[in-house]
């Protein structure tokens, strides 16, 4: 196009004219490019979670019926979440472990709410590749460390749901949650 502009303007012959004409062509092509890029925004963001999915991303759970030593599985964001009422022994076992022995050092205190040390609430999603670990249901194996055991690749979690053995890199994730009353937990 630059060539074109040169032959176009024999009468002006001025370099200014050439640049001005080039400028319009470049501006037009740039505008088309900007328009194209702006169009990508809706085309891409349509794949992000839709409003109904986002709205369903908090859930309230009644924990009044969970006895010490028991756990339940609930659903949060279409994934399992484990709510576990720890026994004093389990709490003691978790607190007895020195942090230096842990792959992902965290204390039980950091993983629970103040004054509610017995309520261990974690995602039921193995941090290795996303399987659901065993140990929440009655009679399920709890692994070598008395917490959870992932049957897919053999990751074992302790009574604070911290990774102790196997390929998983991190402790079971603790979702955002709060106690809306003594017996109701709001997750998300």
């Amino acid at each position: 196009m630059a060539e074109q502009a040169v032959t176009d303007t024999p009468e002006t012959g001025a370099g200014d004219g050439v640049r001005r004409r080039d400028f319009i062509n470049i501006a037009a092509v740039s505008a088309a490019g900007v328009g194209g890029l702006a169009t990508l925004v809706p085309l891409i963001s349509q794949m992000a979670p839709s409003a109904d999915v986002l709205a369903a991303s908090s859930t309230e759970i009644d924990i009044s019926s969970i006895q010490p030593g028991q756990a339940i599985k609930a659903e949060f964001r279409k994934q399992p979440v484990f709510l576990r009422n720890l026994t004093p022994q389990e709490i003691a076992a978790a607190e007895a472990v020195p942090l230096s022995e842990l792959r992902d050092p965290q204390t039980l205190k950091e993983r629970t709410k103040e004054g509610k040390l017995n309520w261990l609430i974690t995602m039921g999603v193995c941090t290795h590749l996303g399987c659901v670990p065993l140990g929440a249901g009655e009679g399920e194996v709890k692994g070598d460390f008395g917490g959870y055991f992932c049957p897919c690749h053999g990751s074992s979690y302790d009574t604070a749901a911290r990774i102790r053995k196997g390929p998983a890199p991190l402790n079971l994730q603790v979702p955002e949650f709060e106690f809306t009353s003594d017996t109701v937990v709001k997750i998300g």
Partner: peptide, 20 residues
């Protein structure tokens, strides 16, 4: 607004290209 702007630019570029 953007389309109007881009179309006017496009028209000027078109005039430009076809000048000869």
């Amino acid at each position: 607004g953007f389309l109007l702007f881009a179309t006017i630019l496009g028209f000027l570029a078109f005039k430009n290209v076809w000048a000869d």
